[in-house]
């Protein structure tokens, strides 16, 4: 019953809002360039389906390339930090500075470095900057999350630092890394869109390009259709990572309490 409510309630709210929006547009005769009715957005979605899908795949490809780059850098750095307290202390403030600096402020700089001829490089670079911190922070937290008594056992059995890292700390960090990747995937999409706004598109035009292009032509329904496609893309990515998390780590995490190994 709760599950049914969880599905029906948000759908009902969306239906009510869309209905109100449609009615308002018709009754108040709002101009289509200002606010097109949802029916017009739906029509644009259908008409532009092929282009939007192509652009969504381009954005997805760049976000995933960025996620992979960020994961390699963040996991590598987290591993080195786990080995050395000095490195961890040295890296943390820099990683934090990277996280709190607004990406949009850095974007023009990265666009210059990437070169006018290679805007897609700027997009990938900026998206990986956006994705870096949650993975790094998740991995670092995860590497420090192993049970204290398990650490004592490893010490008792004379485990080397390498053994403790790879046989205790790394496996214990896995659920945290997946959680970090889930958050980072969303940020990578946001990063890819913001970067495309600033650095522009190369041959591979992403959803940001579609939004800008429609906006410049005052084709607001197409603009909204591209935004809907973007929201769908981000939603599907989030769902994918949540499913992976549940499939592999759900019961493991649930049982941490039962076993007292939290």
């Amino acid at each position: 019953m709760k599950r049914l409510v969880g599905i029906v309630a948000p759908l009902a709210l969306i239906a009510v809002l869309l209905g109100a929006w449609e009615a308002a547009c018709r009754i108040l005769a709002i101009p289509a360039y200002f606010l097109p009715p949802p029916s017009a957005v739906a029509a644009a979605l259908v008409a532009e389906a092929a282009t939007l899908t192509r652009s969504a795949l381009n954005t997805l490809a760049m976000a995933m390339a960025a996620l992979a780059l960020a994961a390699v850098a963040a996991l590598g750095l987290a591993l080195v930090s786990a080995f050395s307290f000095t490195v961890e202390r040295a890296v943390r403030p820099l990683a934090l500075a990277l996280q709190v600096t607004p990406m949009i402020a850095v974007a023009p700089l990265v666009a210059i470095w990437a070169g006018v001829a290679h805007p897609e490089r700027a997009v990938v670079a900026l998206a990986s900057l956006a994705a870096f911190f949650p993975i790094f922070s998740g991995a670092l937290t995860g590497l420090q999350s192993a049970d204290r008594d398990l650490h004592r056992l490893f010490a008792l059995y004379g485990a080397s630092r390498r053994q403790t890292l790879f046989r205790l700390r790394v496996p214990a960090s896995a659920p945290f890394v997946v959680e970090g990747l889930r958050v980072a995937a969303g940020l990578a999409v946001i990063g890819a869109v913001v970067a495309e706004f600033v650095a522009g598109s190369g041959a591979a035009q992403g959803l940001a390009w579609r939004i800008l292009e429609a906006g410049n032509r005052l084709q607001t329904a197409r603009m909204l259709a591209a935004i809907v496609a973007l929201a769908l893309l981000a939603g599907l990515l989030h769902l994918g990572f949540t499913l992976v998390e549940r499939r592999f780590f759900g019961r493991w995490l649930e049982n941490k309490h039962a076993l007292g190994v939290d």
Partner: peptide, 30 residues
């Protein structure tokens, strides 16, 4: 050290290893 063993209040098993791998751990570390 290798001749000393410790049992805690909670079983303190690694959730990513099966029962036998948990038991084998001290041997593998040695």
């Amino acid at each position: 050290r290798g001749e000393t063993a410790l049992v805690f209040q909670s079983p303190t098993l690694a959730p990513w290893l099966d029962a036998a791998a948990n038991v084998a751990l001290p041997l593998e570390l040695a």
